[in-house]
Amino acid sequence: MDGTLVDSEKLWDIALHEMAKHLGGELTLETRLRMVGTNTAVTLELMYAELRLELTPEAYAEADAWLGDRMAELFTDELPWRPGALDALRTARDAGVPTALVTSTVRELTELALDSIGREFFDVSVCGDEVDGHNKPHPEPYLRAARLLGVDPTRCVAVEDSPTGVSAAVAAGCTVLVVPNELPVEPGERRVFRDSLIGFTLPMS
């Protein structure tokens, strides 16, 4: 979702840089890029390591709540679409293709995003706090989505923008339509590259 369908990584940029200042430090570009495609737990681990702070359970709970509240504020406004993403969703829906939203974002924020994106485009959704800690790059998010859809993951196409997401989808057995955004993605097995989703058709060309 983030960076694939909507350009919400820029909203995460705002919140994460604000959080670093709130904690008394600065977030470097290198560490911020390492956060792309990960879940909240990994993001906070990277943040606290960057700032040389101890991430105690109490600190984690406070930081998690702070970040969730700030992102909820930012997600309240209409989210900016990635080029061609809305038309791609409409194309898939019009073709009757079963569709899942698979994201590392937690359910609470995903529900806010779906209010903007349109939940009617998805048959099911899998969020970062629903996979028992087996977040991307682990294949479980995509395997869970395939189970919920009742389909074989090897017959699925995942749309991803980051190395972490691509690794998860490939490990699950999916073919991946890679549309890089913040980070470059290396060529590899079961990967088809496009510059954007503009002109997306079924079957993929």
Rank of each mutant, 00 (worst) to 15 (best):
E30S: 00
W81R: 14
L16T: 12
G173W: 12
A171S: 13
D2S: 13
E9V: 07
T40P: 04
E120R: 14
R194H: 04
D69L: 12
D69M: 11
D152I: 11
R32H: 03
V97F: 05
T154K: 08
F75Q: 04
G199N: 11
S125W: 13
E160K: 02
A65L: 07
F200K: 07
D132C: 03
H134Y: 11
S162N: 02
R119H: 14
R34N: 02
E30T: 01
G199T: 13
L101Q: 08
V170I: 02
A15S: 05
E140M: 11
D7I: 06
P141H: 07
T31W: 08
A145F: 14
T4I: 01
A92L: 14
D2P: 10
L202F: 07
V185G: 01
P187I: 00
F122N: 07
P180G: 01
V124K: 12
L27R: 06
R155G: 08
V106I: 15
W81D: 11
L101R: 12
T175A: 13
E26W: 09
F122G: 04
G96V: 09
T99M: 15
L55K: 15
A63V: 13
V178Y: 11
A171C: 09
L16M: 14
N135E: 13
R155D: 06
I117L: 15
A88L: 13
S104W: 14
V178H: 01
A158Q: 08
V151A: 04
D115Y: 14
A49T: 11
P57N: 15
P83H: 07
D94V: 10
W12L: 06
T201S: 08
N135K: 15
P80V: 00
L89M: 15
T43S: 04
A113C: 08
S162V: 05
C127Q: 10
R34Y: 00
L202M: 11
T164V: 05
D123I: 15
A41P: 01
G150E: 12
S125Q: 08
L79N: 02
R93I: 08
T38S: 07
G165K: 10
L11Q: 03
T31Q: 08
A88N: 04
G150A: 11
V178P: 03
R34L: 00
P139N: 12
